[in-house]
Amino acid sequence: MLHETWQNNDIKKVKVAHTNAAKYKVSDMLTAGSIYTVVNETEEYIFVIDNSGKVGGYYKTYFEEVK
Rank of each mutant, 00 (worst) to 15 (best):
V39K: 01
A21D: 02
T5R: 13
A22Y: 09
T31G: 07
M29W: 06
E4F: 13
K23E: 08
E41T: 04
G56D: 02
K12P: 09
L2R: 03
E64T: 05
H3C: 10
H3D: 10
V66P: 01
Y36D: 03
K60A: 03
S27W: 14
K25I: 12
T19P: 05
E43C: 13
Y62Q: 01
A17P: 08
H3Q: 14
A17E: 15
N51R: 15
T42P: 00
V48F: 02
E65L: 07
H3A: 11
K13Y: 12
S52T: 11
T37Y: 04
N51F: 08
T19K: 13
K13D: 01
F63G: 00
E44M: 12
F63V: 02
V48P: 04
G53V: 08
Y58E: 00
K60M: 03
I35C: 09
G57P: 03
F47D: 07
V66W: 11
V16L: 07
N20M: 01
N9E: 04
L2P: 05
T5H: 13
I35Q: 12
Y24W: 09
E44Y: 10
K25S: 14
K12V: 13
K67R: 08
N9A: 04
V38G: 03
A21L: 03
I46S: 00
I46K: 02
E64P: 02
M1E: 15
Y58K: 00
V39D: 00
V26E: 02
I35W: 11
K12S: 04
Y62N: 00
Y36G: 00
T31W: 05
A22D: 07
D28E: 14
Y45E: 06
F63D: 01
N20E: 14
G56V: 06
K15C: 03
E4V: 15
M29R: 07
N40M: 06
A32S: 15
Y24E: 11
V66R: 05
G33H: 11
I35K: 15
Y36K: 00
K60E: 06
Y36A: 01
K25V: 09
K54N: 13
